[in-house]
């Protein structure tokens, strides 16, 4: 931190600014919410930053991996964070962006066995993995074992196709799916920051809308 930096805004000042921009009712609901982000890559790091900025009360952040040089083009990490765990690196960045959010960080892989204990205090769960089988596992596990939770998953954000093909669909009352549904990174070329961020933005917005009681 620079020695000439002004003191950080207080919690009260940040809350007042949030109320000014997002409305008192929304801020009150968001402050009471806990949202889990499973996977802190291109989707998860962007989802977490959006939600932290929006004033969500508590974020549960989970990833087993470390920051790799091939992550920097689309994930919210810095060059000096290559090699350190994503959970630790993102927490560091989030504390600079939004220090008044409560963070619960887990450096581990989410499995069918530990999902319930990791996720049971969340109101909304965002699936932000990269592998298709991990996505399907989490959806199956959450909807079977934590059926009262809202789940916002993603499928299809690779390629240079138009961003307009990325959509949010409601699959069941508790399950929302964002993405183009088609472009598989194993079959098409290109995982480019703005398209991944579009999908992450769909997920973050859906999570916020669910907290606010909007369908």
């Amino acid at each position: 931190m620079s020695s000439s930096a002004a003191p950080l805004p207080s919690r009260e000042q940040i809350l007042a600014a949030l109320v000014q921009k997002q409305g008192a009712d929304a801020v009150e609901k968001l402050q009471k919410a806990t949202i889990a982000v499973c996977g802190l890559g291109g989707l998860g790091s962007n989802i977490a930053i959006s939600l932290a900025r929006a004033g969500v009360g508590k974020l549960i952040l989970i990833d087993f991996d470390t920051v790799d040089i091939t992550n920097l083009h689309r994930q919210q990490y810095k060059m000096n964070q290559v090699g350190i765990p994503k959970a630790e690196a993102l927490l560091e960045n989030l504390k600079e962006i939004a220090p008044y959010v409560k963070y619960e960080v887990h450096q581990e892989r989410v499995t069918a066995e530990n999902a319930v204990s990791l996720l049971q205090s969340a109101d909304v769960i965002c699936e932000a993995f990269d592998k298709a089988d991990a996505k399907a596992m989490l959806v199956d596990t959450v909807l079977e074992q934590l059926p009262q939770k809202y789940l916002v998953a993603a499928s299809g954000m690779a390629s240079y196709d138009s961003g307009n093909s990325i959509k949010t669909r409601k699959i069941t009352d508790r399950f929302y799916l964002c993405g183009d549904g088609q472009n598989d990174i194993d079959e098409v070329i290109g995982l480019v920051a703005p398209r991944v961020m579009l999908c992450a933005a769909h997920q973050a917005l859906t999570a916020i809308r669910l907290v606010l009681g909007l369908d």
């Binding site: 291109g42 079977e144 472009n183």
Partner: peptide, 25 residues
């Protein structure tokens, strides 16, 4: 749930959606 695929019998009038996940994130 996946554990119920074997015992779930499809019936006339059912509305089914198969969500096929693709990789990338």
């Amino acid at each position: 749930p996946k554990s119920k695929y074997g015992e779930t019998v499809l019936a006339d009038g059912d509305c089914v959606e198969v969500v096929n996940f693709v990789g990338g994130g």
